[in-house]
Design a protein around this nucleic acid. Structure first.
Lengths: 199, 199
DNA sequence: GTGAGTGATATGTTTATGCATATCATAAAT
DNA sequence: ATTTATGATATGCATAAACATATCACTCAC
């Protein structure tokens, strides 16, 4: 199963537990059998949209299609750290950088690079849109983008791609582990799933 | 089919056409058969999550679970009218008002009111979260909420509920038609679907 | 007319769904 | 300790529905 689908399933489970509902209780409210909820949470099924919407509704979540360009800004809102416009600027910067990176990856010459590598890069770049990026993270991203650009202007420079690739990978791992790899001068709240709505 | 599922289907179609793709072209990119895309756009099927995610991916959209509380803010971002923080305040106000309204509806006594009516109210209130609300609209909402409160403190006052109900209905109709029923002192951009990502 | 393009429609196969039941944990009672 | 009860999640199976393949009808160039 894909990353996105798993992510959704996890979000549903997290939201259910946060609301203190058992699978049975959720079942009663949503009209979806408990057995099915179990399968969904275990990633055992590719659930239908109606089931997803029903479950989301009960969990006070709304399924929304967000343009990739605006994903970082939206996630900032969802995390709730937009209060007082604290990191709106940072989110905007992240949006632009990630968009640029995504464009660069899309422009990679398919002759020089294997399709697998390109998809890997794209996946990583898009994954990063889900995280809150600190100023230091943004610097990392900028470097990765610069390396990518170097390769684009000189396709023989395979090292540049590898550098970008490893940089993205490290960044993702650091973010996924909660602790920043770059010096966390100010503590950053741990990553939390979509469904968070306790403010 | 539910409101949410239809909305998603419409968004997909709109996004596809905005990208200038035929159903076949989209089919090739997403690995979803053209015949199936046809049915999806016509609301003839209750598609599976994997199909939805694949289509969204190709159309540069990301499926996201948004807490209801933050839906208005998120939609403001998606519409793109957050530029320069123009109506962030207004969006925040709308968020609070709609949240309050939703809570009030949830608190309605099931003895005095039919389940149908309550669901109708809830549906309308939640629908409004999808729109951009002008200052005048917010006043309308405030009135509806006040009426609702009146009923909550005196459950014999059925007129209050009816007033709130009709107010919500009128507001929705006005917004759906694009033209505001309340004096549009400053022209408001027409409502646009989720998928918009041309900035 | 021919051909390439579009979206809709039929038919067989795969799979999510829904119901019943099984398993598992924890706790209470004998 | 063994049993019994309770509340949770998981599994087996029948069936309805999504999905895949192929075909259709329609439009527009040429």
């Amino acid at each position: 199963m894909g990353y996105a689908t798993e992510h959704i399933a996890e979000s549903l489970k997290a939201a259910r537990e946060r609301k203190g509902l058992s699978q049975r209780a959720l079942s009663a409210k949503a009209g979806v059998p408990q057995s099915h909820i179990s399968k969904i949470e275990n990633g055992a099924v590719d659930l239908r949209l109606s089931s997803l919407v029903e479950l989301a509704r009960v969990l006070d979540l709304e399924l929304t299609l967000v343009p990739r360009k605006k994903l970082p800004a939206v996630r900032a809102i969802i995390r709730g750290d937009d209060d007082g416009h604290r990191d709106v600027q940072s989110a905007r910067k992240a949006t632009n950088l990630l968009q640029r990176l995504d464009d660069q990856i899309a422009a990679l010459p398919s002759e020089t690079l294997s399709e697998i590598v390109v998809q890997e890069l794209q996946r990583r770049a898009r994954e990063l849109m889900h995280f809150k990026l600190s100023a230091d993270d943004l610097v990392q991203l900028q470097e990765a983008s610069a390396a990518m650009q170097e390769f684009l202007s000189d396709p023989r420079n395979l090292e540049a791609v590898e550098q970008a690739q490893s940089q993205l990978r490290m960044l993702r791992n650091a973010l996924a582990h909660g602790a920043g790899v770059s010096a966390p001068s100010l503590p950053r709240p741990a990553y939390r799933l979509d469904g968070d709505d306790r403010g």
